[in-house]
Nucleic acid binder design. Sequence first.
DNA 1: TATCACCATCGTAATTTTGCGATGATATAA
DNA 2: TTATATCATCGCAAAATTACGATGGTGATA
Lengths: 112, 112
Amino acid sequence: MPITKTTSFNQKQNALAHVAKALGHPARIAILQVLMEQETCVCNDIVMQLPLAQATISQHLKVLKDAGLVKGEIAPNKSCYCINPEGWKLAKVILGDFMEAYEDQATDLCCD
Amino acid sequence: MPITKTTSFNQKQNALAHVAKALGHPARIAILQVLMEQETCVCNDIVMQLPLAQATISQHLKVLKDAGLVKGEIAPNKSCYCINPEGWKLAKVILGDFMEAYEDQATDLCCD
DNA sequence: TATCACCATCGTAATTTTGCGATGATATAA
DNA sequence: TTATATCATCGCAAAATTACGATGGTGATA
């Protein structure tokens, strides 16, 4: 595979793709929803609420952490895993800006 | 892999993940940006503007079509590939709703 | 008809993702 | 000290993604 993904595109494109990719799996969406509903940051309720093994959840959480959507203080026993407000806000802006960039002025001009 | 992704999660979660996944690759972002800048729907400028083979672009376009973000009338010669206004709007809502669902009320409560 | 431009699809190879059991590490509770 | 609970990580297997060359199909053009 000659083309190396990350070097061929600019920073914005890579950043956007990175966040979107993290959201690109239903399990990860479900995990985020659990974290949203959770007032306290107590964790591992995730494992109970989802039909996935603990190792799998942990893996998904890592992806979400890498994307900056989640942060976690791994204080064993008093575990803490929650949404990263800064990262979330940034993701919202990045995604929002991109989606807003297209205004459907061409609705009637385009294709059929 | 016992758990079959699509059956274990609800419709909304799958729909969201599906769109996000389509956005989860820099090449696809770049393709959409080309389509956004393109007033006319003339295509294959994409192939010229990106460092990817035609077959690869075509594959990415298929992913974007499946996600409803792009539509294409394959009228040979007078080709037409453009952003799908309806699908785009829907994606914007789906993504937007999800990202808005989290308000950072817990910024100070959470973790550290 | 033969050629050209445009695009989908097939076949293939490398890489990445996904999922899970097993294992280890760490702090608390018994 | 000995469990127990919580979570990360390793190792493995199956599946999906990514990229490309080659091929084929189709409409316009020479």
